[in-house]
Design a protein around this nucleic acid. Structure first.
Length: 353
DNA sequence: GTTATTTGACCCGC
DNA sequence: GCGGGTCAAATAAC
């Protein structure tokens, strides 16, 4: 346990120092006629560092603290639509214990692994735990004027590939499942679900999950999607109405896809969907709006990661930017440097599990 | 030939 | 057992 504390503290200190150093550099650059991109990328790095640091802190928060913080934050008048806790407090406590234990296991398993290759079964287990339970998820309600010839859900600037459609029991319209086109080539695990709204057939409810690590964001437009089937609401015609509302889960959920972030990386998907603590205290919009967790990608107007809605690299650690197969990929990342793993060739063989 | 979509089957959590 | 999410073979589109 002492060693755990040691590397956690080490990582934490490293992140804070890095954040400070980059902030200093930003300050120096501020008066220079350097590009906005440069400043934005520095800003991105700073926030990324603090994201990491905060996540490490959160990771190590005592259960009692977590619970207290959750209760406090859930009472916050600013917190919106965090998942209501249905569980009895005792159950919550047990769940947190369980989750904390799992989280710790995953992190320590990674950091402390002396083996050159982590067992595939471990990776598999870790992946599903993270992806299904911890990857951020948020919903957007998007309205589109179908009369204008748009036949399908909005194109959000990313390139998606449909991999399934399902009739939902209580829903009038089927739900379509999309994943990032670059999942195979770049290991991007972002997915989205699109479902036509029952109340308003011209509207779509789009649920995003996971972060783009593919660097093929809105600006690249590297897509082979049929233009008629998707509407790019970044460049929507005036007649196109776009509404966003009910960002139900994680407005800060990492959608970081800057090149820089991929190198630097990110705890991206370790924002915990089911973790009451992270939802309410680390991720609730009130926290974001008011303090540390607001992503630069949301703040900047011309930056490389100027997302159309509050995407964030919050909690990003390291992009395990793996070129891969269809296999599940870790979509969370952490700074190897910060924990003293300097070898950039750290063997993370996600290719063949 | 390559890439995307469709759709039935399968997996897994509840 | 049910239902949501994903897989993967078949098919379509380019």
């Amino acid at each position: 346990m002492e060693s755990e504390k040691s590397w956690e503290q080490h990582a934490l200190v490293n992140e804070l120092i890095e954040g400070m150093e980059v902030a200093r550099k930003l300050k120096e650059d501020w008066s220079l006629p350097s590009s906005a991109d440069s400043r934005n990328s520095l800003l991105q790095r700073i926030l990324s560092s603090y994201d990491k640091a905060l996540l490490i802190l959160k990771w190590n928060a005592p259960i009692s603290n977590s619970q207290t913080m959750h209760q406090e934050s859930s009472q916050s008048p600013l917190s919106i639509q965090t998942s209501p806790l249905r569980e009895h407090p005792k159950e919550v406590h047990h769940q947190q214990l369980k989750q904390n234990s799992k989280k710790r296991f995953v992190l320590l398993g990674y950091f402390n692994s002396t083996s050159q290759h982590i067992q595939k079964s471990t990776l598999y287990t870790c992946f599903f735990f993270f992806f299904r339970k911890m990857v951020p998820k948020w919903t957007r309600h998007v309205r589109v004027n179908i009369d204008n010839g748009f036949e399908g859900p909005l194109h959000d600037g990313y390139s998606w590939r449909k991999y399934g459609q399902k009739d939902i029991l209580s829903a009038k319209y089927p739900r379509s499942y999309y994943r990032c086109t670059f999942r195979k080539t770049m290991g991007c695990c972002a997915t989205k679900q699109v479902q036509r709204s029952e109340e308003d057939p011209n509207a779509f409810d789009i649920t995003y999950r996971g972060s783009h690590t593919c660097c093929k964001g809105p600006k690249s437009q590297d897509t082979k999607e049929k233009p008629h089937s998707n509407v790019d609401f970044h460049h929507a015609k005036p007649s196109l109405t776009v509404e966003t509302e009910n960002v139900t889960a994680h407005p800060l959920a990492s959608f970081g896809c800057t090149t820089q972030d991929n190198q630097h990386s990110l705890f991206s998907s370790m924002v915990l969907e089911n973790d009451p603590f992270s939802q309410t205290s680390l991720l609730s919009p009130n926290t974001a709006e008011s303090s540390y967790f607001l992503s630069p990608s949301f703040l900047v107007s011309d930056g490389v990661c100027n997302k159309p809605w509050p995407y964030s690299d919050a909690a990003g650690i390291v992009s395990a930017d793996t070129s891969t197969t269809n296999s599940p990929i870790f979509d969370f990342n952490f700074s190897l440097h910060s924990v003293g793993i300097e070898d950039s060739k750290f063997p993370f063989d996600a290719l063949d599990f």
